[in-house]
Write a protein that binds this DNA or RNA. Sequence first.
RNA 1: CGGAGCAUAGCUCAGUCCGGUAGAGCACAGCCUUCGGGAGGCUGGGGCCGGAGGUUCGAAUCCUCUUGCUCCGACCA
Length: 421
Amino acid sequence: MLFSKFFAPTSKDTPADAQIASHRLMLRAGMISQTASGIYCWLPLATRVLEKISRIICEEQDKIGAQKVYFTTIQPADLWIESGRYDSYGKEMLRLKDRKDGEFLYSPTNEEQATDVFRKYVHSYRGMPIMLYQIHWKFRDEIRPRFGIMRGREFLMKDGYSFDLNFEDARRTYRNIFQSYIKTFRRLGLTPVPVQADSGAIGGNMSHEFHILAETGESTLYYDKKLPTATDEDLETIYAVADEKHDPKTCPIPEEELMISKGIEVGHIFYFGTKYSKAMNAFVLNDKGDKVFPEMGSYGVGVSRLVGAIIEASHDERGITWPESTAPFDAVILNLHVKNDKCRRMAEKIYDALSSKKEVLYDERNITAGEKLADADLIGIPWQIIVGPKNAENDIVELKNRKTGEVTNMTVSEIINRFIR
RNA sequence: CGGAGCAUAGCUCAGUCCGGUAGAGCACAGCCUUCGGGAGGCUGGGGCCGGAGGUUCGAAUCCUCUUGCUCCGACCA
């Protein structure tokens, strides 16, 4: 991709309204454009990141047997009247009317629709267990949207729904999802902190939130100081709770071993048994011919919020420092002097060689070197290949790591081999 | 939903108290000089001063109403 053709409207001005690093940087890097309070357009750079994150989530979901679907964003009120949530969800639900005055809503979550699809087509235990998920836009009319895309009203979420025949199976599914989420967040370059949580409007009695520790997080977490070094097997037994679950009177951890941190909630999983299957009369027959209501759970990952969370965890004073797994490009080539023939030849040779195998941005804009270096640091692509006139005289280019700042001098063919192995 | 702000050029803001020709920097367009950290020069284009009423000879400025956005709190995946 040629930078001169790439729509990434960067800016050196810090927007007045942006309070936290990720919001500021997303605006400055030309990733998002606000269209109303809590509602944002996702520009090409941010869209590439959303797609990287989504791909990793999908791969991990596929591994545990979840099947991808698209539910609908617009749903009839009737489904929600059946579950009883049409009234209880309150003003956060955006309600709409069609031309015939029929009542609809823009989906904030999809337990009802998942249950509806299940009951239409699955009537026997032989069709179970089943797990469906989607990555789609949601709308929740938040009282107070804030921090850019971190608490938007419209947001991209992965939401999954499981249907099991009995409690034991449902609990196993819940554990599988739990472990899968840990893996997913780690692949995204993050360190997740799972905590016990309330189940809120979803309902149910077993629930965990997954947080990324950050000063700017909106949630307060209480946990055993052993948690950050715990192995996968410990997790479920170590004390870690969200603030609404924490009570100093009943807390089993002595005060001196208790850590209190701010976290960004990026995932939330729920087991809620037969709450929706019973309310919506979704049932199957088991091997004895008995009517059985499936044990359900739902599992959410805030995909768009993850973009903000990753930036909160990965930035410095000059800009974003993307982890390689979610970076919008693998590398950026900076031709510092586009009118210098030697620079141009070297940069183009590298670009032609790499772009067949890697996602590469080539900065061939006719602007100052300082501007290119500043932009590259701002948008935070992990590897910068810097072609400057002085080094070009000696047939050398620089490979610079955005995060560490480490610079290695290499020849053109060494660079090409470094990225195409 | 309570509380507090803000709204003037694409962006960041000055001008508003104390009414009298619409401003700056950056950005943008053209030309030139530069070219390793957002460089410099010349020229140019950009505005219903959020909207509606009112007061006044005259309103960005004063008054009333309204809309939008931001922040704090409560709420929330």
